[in-house]
Amino acid sequence: MNIFKQLIKSLYSPKDIALFRFQGIGKTILYIFFLTLIAIIPNVSYFSSAIINGIEATQNTINEGIPEFEISNGELTSDQAEPITMEQDNFTIIFDSTGDITLDELEVSNGLALLKNDFVLVAGGNIDTYSYSLFTDMILTKKDISSLVKSMESLLPIILPILVLTIYIFTAGIKFLEVTILALFGLVLKNIMNLKLQYRHMWRMAAYSVTLPTIFFTIMAALQTPVPNGFLINWFVSTIILYLALKEIPKPKTN
């Protein structure tokens, strides 16, 4: 059975998941990498789009919409008396040297903010914050930032693949850890159910048991729809599927 059929079968058939325990470990590892690749598509898409649109919007906004400013001693200073908010191509740029806007008050899906003490990048609702205190030995001006943004734009063909690869490797590591923990819990279940299985069998079955929640959360990410208690739902569904797969395994005959 090819990897695509395995993906479909793993969405609804605990019986097939139980049969997958006999396949080679290499194919199971390949399946986890394949599942990881599917899982990161929405986040990578939004992240890449946000970076590309953000750099272009930032370049235009810095040159035309933001006053002269300076970042020194961990603070942003300018002559602007109130915050500035600009929208361009579904990308929001906020400039606030007054300190009126805090991190908790940012409500944007994609954008960046130059706040009093922090630089904030928002991609697909995920917020990354960088304190200006990292540049205590430097003085940055509007001209410096504009030059930096222009340099980043020219490096995008190099930066984006590296970022995507980093996200993929990190996510794959998390997925392997998830499968390993689920397989350990599966050992407890198989002992309770009196099944003669080894850890290698449990690990293979666990790899396919995470398929349904992974695809579900991938779809939710593509729709940009948050799922309350997603962590608990993920583990609950994976465990139930693994349990149903274990029930499909015949118990050893007793004399």
Rank of each mutant, 00 (worst) to 15 (best):
D96R: 07
S97M: 04
G99T: 10
D104Q: 08
E105R: 05
E107C: 00
V108N: 08
S109H: 10
N110S: 07
G111H: 04
L114D: 04
L115Y: 05
L115P: 01
F119Y: 15
V120A: 05
V122P: 00
V122R: 06
G124D: 07
Y132M: 14
Y132V: 14
Y132P: 09
Y132A: 13
L134F: 15
L140K: 05
K143P: 00
I145E: 04
S151M: 10
E153M: 09
I158D: 06
L163W: 07
V164R: 07
V164F: 11
V164P: 02
L165M: 14
L165D: 01
I167K: 00
Y168T: 05
I169V: 14
F170V: 09
T171F: 00
T171H: 03
A172C: 11
I174R: 13
K175F: 10
F176Y: 13
E178V: 11
V179K: 00
A183C: 10
G186M: 01
L187P: 01
K190R: 12
N191L: 03
N191Q: 10
L195Q: 12
L197A: 06
L197N: 05
H201A: 14
M202Y: 07
R204N: 05
M205S: 01
M205V: 02
T211A: 15
T214C: 09
T214W: 03
